[in-house]
Design a protein around this nucleic acid. Structure first.
Lengths: 333, 333
DNA sequence: CTGGAGCGAGAAACCGGTTTCTCACTGTTT
DNA sequence: AAACAGTGAGAAACCGGTTTCTCGCTCCAG
């Protein structure tokens, strides 16, 4: 034939016709209902293969009342922090016969709300990772009654399921570590303004005087570039140790320090947070706080699964972190 | 009320009833058809807001015959190589009123095929990024007749739309650069076995003798860990320069070299590939090849859009790369 | 031999939208 | 004043599945 005709979709009716069965029977075979005679089932299967039939996701979704999709919204896909979470959630979802629809809000709180609304139309359940949207928006979303779980954000007085990381303790551990090394004055390089993770770090640091630490905060960000840019100011602060918002920032600081001839940890101690892969490979390797991201993802995925099956009794969980002491921190010289 | 009854979904019929209109009219208002009297339209809009109505994605997808979703399959979400691609494609898709369904095959060719089949049921179009699946599988997928675009893989004799990166020229540029610096013997740390990107690098390197270079290859991988592990073998190869599969591998090598007291570039030159952010911040910064990933994503997104609207005449494109000379390469001492 | 239980499989209702078809009503033309 | 084109809006068909309902048939007990 000259022009292959615009291949019309193969439907369940086509399969039924070819197999000499009804659509109901084809549906039964497809869904593993065992009340179909072996011979008929075989004919149906043959027809399916023969025609290359694949059920329409939309039609199935409509008929079944659920799409088999769970949505995951992250502020930044480029942040490895979320990769392990996405991978774990995907694994859990896959085991439950669902797939994961990942979206990226680009750190934009407005887009975040919009995407959340959109995802709610597509997905059976929703996982909001580290949402930056204002409390009111979050409240509105939670009020929609859809199965939804939030990670790394707690909103007092709002009934939403959440799984968080114990950033507070992580920062405390860092403070204790630095205090033990004899540091007295430290500088904190702040993360994104709207991030709960940043709020928690600040909250913990506000109690650092208990360790005999004097903490000053500088605005910074969450990327290597921003760390690099903030390094000089950190140096000028007169502190003997830098607590970076995360490992990326720390690596940026480290790079700039190297250029400036500042020796780590002899001249200045430096800590990160999250324990990304690269943290082990810098010179010196970073003292940081390990966040069990895959565990977080797994817990979140399972909790969301329970929420979707109607279990309202999910208790908020806070996963523990672990201090990793490496070469970037030392006694003051 | 004591128990809020399991909130049934608000449907278009509910809106119609409340507004005193027909479902057809509600649909018209929703889709901006302007043949509705202003007063009626206003009542409908009020009812929509009042009831908090959101159209079901499944029903819309079924009725419209398309889901408004495009699928993107990547081998590894944790690889920043794909972030910019995903972001660009998302942007293009969003501008066209679609959303992006991202999936991760975990570098598993079998899962890749399975996920591709699955995505085809959900999405209007499909972008396969750097697929590792065997030629036969790829042929089968292409044969399904769905709008589909492949990046970073060319399969001779197979009719599939593809956008590739000119790895070949990139490697040539590296070879020329190293040759000019006086290197004669270089070692290549190979990437993943099934990756076309690796094949292309090998193909380019097989012509490196034209530059007077003697190239030996060692199996390695694509991660920092694997680079770290391969560093010693690279050292023992007797080469004066290491061409790493990508920047991650190079950073791993660099870290191990630092531990071993091998000076870069004095004792050994080192190159990466891709230009990830971190490449600028290592000590010394990496000589690498910049791949315009966002551009690749943009081109891919637009091409896929054209394919989806029935344009069969997409010519394969190869985006150019650019050599970035930094401190990790130098003349042999 | 007959009434009823059990079971396989088709007909049809249904999921929630979009879109075509049809019609009542308006205003214009001769 | 009658015929007609134009327009707004409802009824109904349709998208492609799942699931309930129903029915005919077989098998077994009474």
């Amino acid at each position: 034939m000259v022009a292959s005709k615009r291949a019309k979709r193969v439907t369940i009716a086509d399969v039924a016709r070819q197999a000499g069965a009804s659509v109901a029977t084809v549906s039964r075979v497809l869904n593993g209902v065992d009340t179909v005679a072996p011979g008929l089932a075989e004919r149906v299967r043959a027809a399916i293969v023969d025609l290359g039939y694949r059920p329409s996701a939309a039609a199935q979704g409509l008929a079944r009342g659920r799409s088999g999709t769970i949505g995951v919204l992250v502020p930044d896909l480029a942040n490895p922090y979320f990769h392990d979470i996405i991978k774990s959630v995907s694994a859990v979802a896959r085991a439950a016969g669902s797939r994961v629809l990942v979206m990226d809000s680009n750190e934009d709180p407005a887009a975040e709300r919009e995407l959340t609304e959109d995802l709610l139309r597509y997905a059976d359940g929703l996982l909001l990772c580290s949402p930056r949207m204002p409390r009111a928006d979050l409240a509105a979303m939670a009020g929609r009654g859809a199965p939804m779980l939030v990670t790394n954000r707690q909103v007092p007085g709002l009934a939403l399921h959440s799984i968080t990381v114990d950033f507070f303790r992580g920062v405390m551990a860092l403070c204790g570590h630095l205090a033990r090394l004899g540091h007295r004055r430290v500088v904190y390089l702040e993360g994104p303004q709207r991030a709960w993770a940043n709020d928690e770090r600040l909250r913990a640091l506000s109690g650092a005087e208990a360790f005999g630490l004097d903490v000053v905060s500088l605005p910074c960000g969450s990327t290597t570039d921003e760390g690099y840019a903030a390094a000089r100011a950190a140096l000028d602060s007169g502190a003997t140790a830098v607590i970076a918002y995360n490992d990326f920032v720390a690596l940026g600081v480290l790079a700039h320090f190297a250029e400036l001839g500042v020796k780590v940890p002899d001249d200045m101690s430096l800590t990160g947070f999250d324990e990304i892969d690269m943290a082990r490979f810098s010179a010196p390797p970073l003292t940081t706080v390990a966040v069990p991201r895959d565990r977080l993802g797994q817990i979140a995925g399972e909790a969301l699964g329970r929420i979707m099956s109607g279990d309202e009794d999910i208790e908020p969980e806070s996963v523990p972190v672990e201090l990793r002491v490496r070469g970037s921190t030392g006694v003051i010289s």
